[in-house]
């Protein structure tokens, strides 16, 4: 049985996000008022050959620590299933 994992990688609070700010300004130019802040991140989906959700989550968290996220500037959250 395989499991799907979804990793959300987002910039930590306090880290400037120039891309998010550019998106916010562009939204304003399109007439979408009231957007106070935009933070951009990424989503990484993995299909795992693993039947145990807890073990899969631990494995994906290890992947985040070693490669998928740069923990100097990024937070990550792992969803299984």
């Amino acid at each position: 049985m395989s499991l799907k994992a979804r990793v959300h990688v987002t910039l930590k609070n306090g880290v400037l996000d120039p891309q998010g700010e550019a998106i916010r300004q562009s939204l304003g130019a399109l007439g979408f008022d009231g957007v106070e802040k935009v933070r951009q991140g990424k989503v990484i989906e993995l299909l795992l050959d693993d039947g145990d959700p807890a073990a899969a989550k631990a494995k994906v968290e290890a992947m985040c620590e070693k490669l998928l996220a740069n923990t100097v500037i990024e937070n990550y959250a792992v969803e299984i299933g």
Binding site: V15, L16, P18, Q19, A22, N70, V72, I73
Partner: peptide, 16 residues
């Protein structure tokens, strides 16, 4: 930096 041999991070240029 990514290898951890130097501290910090290099992000997208502020002006994009």
């Amino acid at each position: 930096i990514e290898a951890g041999l130097l501290p910090g991070a290099l992000m997208r240029n502020q002006g994009l």
